[in-house]
Amino acid sequence: MIKIQNVHKIFYQGEKKISALQDINLNISQGCIYGVIGASGAGKSTLIRCVNLLERPTIGSVIVDGVDLTALSAHKLTLARRKIGMIFQHFNLLSSRNVFYNIALPLELAGTDKETIHIKVNALLKLVGLMDKKTTYPANLSGGQKQRVAIARALASDPKVLLCDEATSALDPASTLSILNLLRKINKTLNITILLITHEMAVVKGICHEVAIIGDGKLVEHGKVGDIFAHPKTTLARDFIRSTLNLTIPEDYQVRLHATHIPNSYPLLRLEFTGKSVDVPIISQIARKFNIDINILSSNMDYVGGLKFGLMLAEILGEPEAAIEAIAFLKENKIEVEVLGYVV
């Protein structure tokens, strides 16, 4: 449905040349929810804006529903954009129009008659659950409600594609969840292809079927969400997954941490479970097998696409030899172990 081919984007800041996107290739199939994730400044916003040509790629072509947008005239592009809905981080609703007329705007632009507009907008209001807010102005809506209006507006012209530019980044966790549920519902019931960009791994995990990771203007990895989470090939992908798990050593442990083994100290481990790890109750197994105690400090395990992955911080209490054997056993089961130090 969306094909991004060999897209480069170069910005000029005075004399300075900034390469925002380099050789991006993406192929998003019909009905898919595709996530692009990247840190701030990685170029993901530029990428999504290239899809409807709010930003024109310096090189390369963007093909949506079989039409090469980069080859269209200004007028044809305007018409083509009516089949591509877009929602934004800051909603971009017109403050001068109430909810009804905000949603009606794309229909007005297309010259739809009043009666059809009435029927359509009411149906959309029902879909996003804002029937009672019809005559409210955006200033009196919450962030989540504003994004619902924006979604309804984006759907008004029956688009085949919905672009979401950090659509949940300005929302609280509860609103984020409800917006994601709404997007999933739209994807299922209307069979709309959704491309969303975000810096939140939770969003990707929550609704995306496929994901691409972008860093420094380059697409570093893409594939099914489960695969990427379970078998990240690049360090960038791995860092991203780790960043969502976000395990830091507690401060009082850091004070007591020594780089080398000294008498009466215990190893502090970071265990990383990936898709390759053998799925067994490993913690209780090593405790029994090597007669050690395991103190889990923090742990963040997740289950995506049928695979378990996550990080764990734990200290192994027991004989030093037993600890070494336990670590070797963990490694045998394809769990990545890093000895962070020794705690006194």
Partner: peptide, 23 residues
Amino acid sequence: GLVEAAQAMGATPLQIICKVLLP
């Protein structure tokens, strides 16, 4: 951002002036 949203919706420049900028 409002102008951009209107452009993304497929508004012509004249429509943007009359339906977005002036109101």
